[in-house]
Every structure is written in C-alpha cells, then in structure tokens.
Simulated scan of single mutants.
Amino acid sequence: MLQTHLSHQRGGADHGWLKAKHSFSFSSYYDPNNMGFGPLRVINEDRIAPSMGFGTHGHDNMEIITYILDGELSHRDSMGNQEKIPAGEVQKMSAGSGVRHSEFNSSDASEAHLLQIWIEPNVHGIAPEYEQSPLGDLPQANGWRVIAAPNGEWRGATGAMRLYQDAALLNAREVDGARERSYELGEQRAAYVHVAMGAATVNGVALQAGDALKIWDEPMVEVKLDAHAQVLLFDLPRE
C-alpha cells in the first residue's frame, strides 16, 4: 500500500528567525491523526536566519538526527561537544537519560537549511551519546548510504551511527552513483520515504522536495532520482 504525504499537507510555523515545516504534529501544529509513523516521531524542515538559533534546551529518551541541507549549524551540548555541522554532514544524539544543547546558524549572512528528525528509542535511560559524520564517510548497502541503524550495522554494512531502535535511516543521492535505487522491504516492515531536496519518483509516484510516501505491504521500494535530488528512506517496524 502507498500513501502520499505531500509538502503542502505539512504543518508549519513562521517565527521570523525560524521558518519550519512539520511532517508530523509538533509544537503548535497538532493533528491527532498525524502523530508519526511507527517510531518515527518528527521530521521538521527548518530554515534558520543568519546568526539565529535555538537556545539551550533539554531532551531525554529520544534519538535526534540533524541533517544539514545548506549552510552550517553550531552545536554545543552538556556532554561537552562544541561542533560545527556543515552541509553534507549528519549529526546524531541519543538523548537517553537527558542532554541539554543549543543550535545556532553559524553564518551572519546566509540561511541554514536542515532537517530535524526524532525517532523514539526502544530503550530508556541510557547515557547520552553524540556522533557526527560526512555523508560520504558512512557505509553503503546496495547503493544506499546507511546513516543510522541498530549497533551501527545494517544488511552487512558497518560503521553507521548507532540507533537505539529496530529501524534504519538510509540516504540516496545522485553523487553516490546511478539515479535508480532499489530497496527490499522485509516482512512486517514499513518504509517512510522523504524527499529532502530536488525531485524523485518512488514506486511510480512523482514527488517533490518536502513530499513523502508511506509504504507497507510492498516487497520493494523503487526510487528514481532527478538531478541533485536527496532522498531519505526510513525502514521501520510495522505497527
């Protein structure tokens, strides 16, 4: 079964310094029928004005992934990390028993464009963890970049970021090879495919940036990338 979740159907907020689109219920956007997809709880597309950002705030028991599309983010947290995250890199925090952090646009001239992703963990109270990597340094499995997976391993690929959930986050970009990708979806699994940039056709459905496709009871995910497209695939336990 296929179900589209198009960009214009997302919630949103405009705070002046922050323009956000919410794929699922978040903050002032609330839809009881759109609280997430399996353990995937948040995909926020944020555009942050120059020199602005999120002051110090806390999280616990959540897997938090920051995917930079354009610009650069400055990160500081209670684990002692002080990092710059440029476009083309991904950061993952396991908030666990509790972490506090801040995020600011590093530039005083250009907007920062990013995705904030939250995945509910299947263990609680662990010590917080931090990882960061360029996309190109992450392992590949059948042409897909494996960003995060249980124990950092997925379908024979090792060295991904560790995800405390029976789920995986994968990426497809033209730069990594051919524009067509196939992905076998296991039994009792579902996929959420989000077009982060550009355009792509997924299982015959044409999608633009910000669009997504929910997939279940299908054996394969077939993706055709347009030039410069970036696609995220979440392999999730079926509810």
Rank of each mutant, 00 (worst) to 15 (best):
L2K: 09
Q3H: 15
T4I: 15
H5W: 14
D14M: 09
K19M: 09
Y30R: 15
Y30G: 10
M35T: 09
E45R: 13
H57E: 02
N61L: 09
E72H: 07
E72N: 07
H75L: 04
G80I: 05
Q82L: 14
K84I: 09
K84V: 06
K84Q: 05
Q91G: 03
G98T: 14
H101E: 04
S107Q: 00
D108N: 15
A109D: 03
A109T: 03
E111W: 08
H113Y: 07
Q116D: 03
I117N: 02
E120L: 00
V123I: 12
H124C: 03
S133H: 11
G136C: 02
Q140V: 04
N142L: 11
V146I: 01
A148D: 03
A149K: 05
E153V: 06
E153P: 00
W154P: 06
G156N: 08
R173I: 05
A178T: 12
R179D: 12
E180L: 10
L185I: 10
G186V: 02
A191K: 12
Y192D: 09
V193Y: 12
V195E: 03
V202M: 04
D211Y: 00
L213H: 11
W216M: 02
W216H: 09
P219V: 01
V221M: 07
V221R: 06
E222Q: 14
L225G: 02
L225C: 06
L225T: 10
R238K: 03
